[in-house]
Design a protein around this nucleic acid. Structure first.
Lengths: 194, 194
DNA sequence: GTCTATAATTCGATAGAC
DNA sequence: GTCTATCGAATTATAGAC
């Protein structure tokens, strides 16, 4: 049964592996790539540092395994017309508030090439296809998706990473009220020129 | 004459100091705080690593000196009414394109507490006062300034740090055409509720 | 599977000659 | 002011005992 939903067979060490990944996400999210040491991750997971190397080869492999994520963006066809912006904003806020993977990716992506490349992959594999189906002219989809990601990642940056006090104190409903029209505008409004 | 414009007297080593700061900005902007080593900065400045320590005490002192910046935001009173958003966006784009200090600050701020604190200081000392004078209700100024900084820093993040290809390829005029109305809206539009 | 010991680098910082 | 030499600490990663 397990093999039908997960390609890898169950291992006796799965619990340990999960503990490592959870600790890794927390340290990468809090400290970035360089300062999140394998020692600190292992200590937090309450295992020996050599176990991390055994399971994930090296630090890069551990990072890659820790930040694998599927944004689970709603299918473009199922979005209520005119409400794509609001849906996207609430979906992103929900993911950010509950999942530290995104904070880890943002922190690491700022100073590590592999992290930035992962962010670019998520953008082109998950956000761009949605923009292609929502925005009026598919040729403009990349630029519109870039504007949407700039707005959403900018909020995450000021709120979860740089922690500007007013950005931290904003209520999720208030963020949605402000950002949903902006995202909707970037996705579907006529090109403003020039 | 020089003493009237600059508080510090001219030193024989001013050229060396400038070379160090210029190299430091370039390395911090490209590599972040941890990977921008004093050795690499000294090598790029073509001086001895021990000179950096002699002039700036330690790595933190060097960083603080390298990223001191005045955004030189236009006076709120001199902004043409209704054009505050466009003026802000073009001003920011101009600074980002020509000055690597901001890229260094963004990269370092993502993984280093001192860098994030510096970003918060720039926000509250330079952007917040402008918002207080432009937005209709001064009590809402912090939240509005946070939204503006989220939009502007998000564009910088995707364009200069994460380098999303569509964000990199956007022309400055196109960025202004899209972002100026958004920023203007965040600064002066009525609160959308709830 | 788990842990100890350690190799091999690399870094920030210091001491001191010239 | 400038440079050589080096210290002490921290890191990733490996080898091998149990």
């Amino acid at each position: 049964m397990n093999e039908s939903t997960s390609p890898a067979p169950a291992r006796r060490s799965d619990a340990t592996r999960r503990a490592i990944l959870e600790a890794a996400r927390e340290r990468f999210a809090a400290d970035g790539y360089e300062r999140a040491t394998i020692r600190a991750i292992a200590h937090q997971a309450k295992i020996d540092p050599s176990m991390v190397m055994r399971y994930y080869g090296n630090k890069e492999g551990l990072f890659a395994a820790a930040v694998a994520i599927d944004l689970k963006l709603p299918d473009a066809a199922s979005l209520p017309r005119g409400e794509e912006g609001r849906t996207l904003v609430t979906h992103f806020l929900d993911q950010w508030e509950r999942n530290e993977v995104l904070t880890a990716l943002l922190r690491v992506g700022a100073t590590n090439d592999a992290g930035a490349e992962r962010m670019r992959g998520i953008f082109s594999d998950q956000l761009l296809p949605l923009a292609r189906r929502v925005c009026p002219d598919p040729e403009q989809a990349p630029a519109r998706a870039a504007l949407v990601s700039a707005q959403l990642l900018g909020l995450a940056l000021t709120r979860y990473v740089l922690r500007f006090p007013p950005a931290v104190h904003l209520h999720p409903e208030e963020i949605t009220a402000w950002l949903a029209p902006t995202v909707q505008h970037y996705l579907t409004a006529p090109h403003p020129g020039p």
